[in-house]
Amino acid sequence: MIDELDMLARFGGIAHLSVLEADGADRQRLQRLVVGGLLVRPRRGWYAVPNADPLLVRAAQLGGRVTCITALRKMGVWCVDDHRLHLAVASNTGHPPLRQDGLCIHYSRREPPISGPPVVSVLDALADQFRCQTGENVIVAIDSALNKGLIRRSDLNELRSRVPKKYWPLLDCVDGNCESGLETKVRLRLGRRGVRYRTQALIPGVGRVDILIGDRLIVETDGIEFHTGDAAIRDRDRDLLLHRLGYIVIRVTYAMVMYRWDEVESVITSYVSRREHRWSARHVRAGLA
């Protein structure tokens, strides 16, 4: 006998009746599970386990699908959270959800998927953010999706076909090497100032560093999840080794990148203007370069 509860678990805890029936579920058994409190119905045609993801449940209640940065964050993509539920709604829907605080509606001409939970694909979510987020944040999310293997570089052509031509220059700025959104933000801002850099540069005897400017100026980023402990100790030991090898290390936090970038940029451009980001003759004489 088909176990509808196990089936819901396979679909992430929430699914439409048409999907469940296609997989062998029985409508009457589903209804008995609702009466018994083992399932809930967020909206006509939808079934969910009581502890299903609240964002997905709310999306179903509102007649839409989770999209944009709300969906991207659920997929593990690095993006800035504006604490709203971003909801994709069919543009031809007869009953659109009322506009309300905490809700950002993306009207879409795309047909809703016939399977799975009420959340769009990663490409759809990336496309929806172009009209919603800043250019920098758009690139951050695409960089992250590339780096995590959620999309391929060939998918950028598909993205290009889904967004207005005025947004195409943003896709030309995508890198995919950066391992965090903070790295992407730093490289974009350095690029706008004309500062040349390399991302994930390999330093012999040390390993890869986030951003290398010139020959010896390194910028390392510590994300919002950064804490003290063994990881921090390893980072400091690595910084000490880099200093011993003649490198300059600037370690910046989430708050510094997000809210104090002017101060960080001033320090970096000061080093560059004094050409301290380059090996000098004295470094060569000291055997560092």
Rank of each mutant, 00 (worst) to 15 (best):
S154Y: 09
E158M: 06
T134K: 14
L156K: 04
S154R: 14
A145P: 04
R189E: 09
S180W: 08
L190K: 04
K148D: 10
D155T: 07
A127H: 02
F130M: 04
L171E: 09
C173M: 15
S154M: 13
V163I: 15
N137W: 02
G149N: 07
E158S: 13
G135W: 10
R187Q: 08
G149F: 07
L171Q: 10
S144C: 02
F130Y: 02
L156D: 00
Q133D: 13
N177D: 10
R131W: 13
T134I: 05
L146V: 02
Q133K: 14
Q129N: 10
L190C: 03
R153W: 10
K165L: 15
N147H: 15
R131K: 13
V138W: 12
Q129L: 15
R131H: 14
R131Y: 12
L159Y: 06
T184V: 00
R192A: 12
S161A: 14
V174E: 03
L188D: 05
E158R: 14
W168C: 03
K185R: 15
G149I: 10
G149E: 06
K185V: 15
E183T: 03
G191Q: 09
C173D: 11
E136K: 02
L171C: 09
D143M: 06
A141R: 00
P169M: 00
Q133N: 12
E158Q: 12
I142R: 03
G135T: 00
I142P: 12
S154E: 15
G181H: 07
V163S: 03
R189V: 09
I151C: 01
D172P: 01
R131V: 12
T134V: 11
A125K: 05
A125T: 01
L190M: 02
A141T: 02
N177Q: 11
N137R: 10
A125E: 08
T134D: 14
N147Q: 10
S161F: 05
S154Q: 11
D124Y: 05
R189M: 12
K165S: 12
L171K: 12
D143H: 07
P169L: 10
E179K: 06
V186A: 06
R153H: 13
Q133Y: 14
C178M: 06
D124R: 12
D143C: 02
L123Y: 09
T134A: 13
L126F: 09
L150G: 05
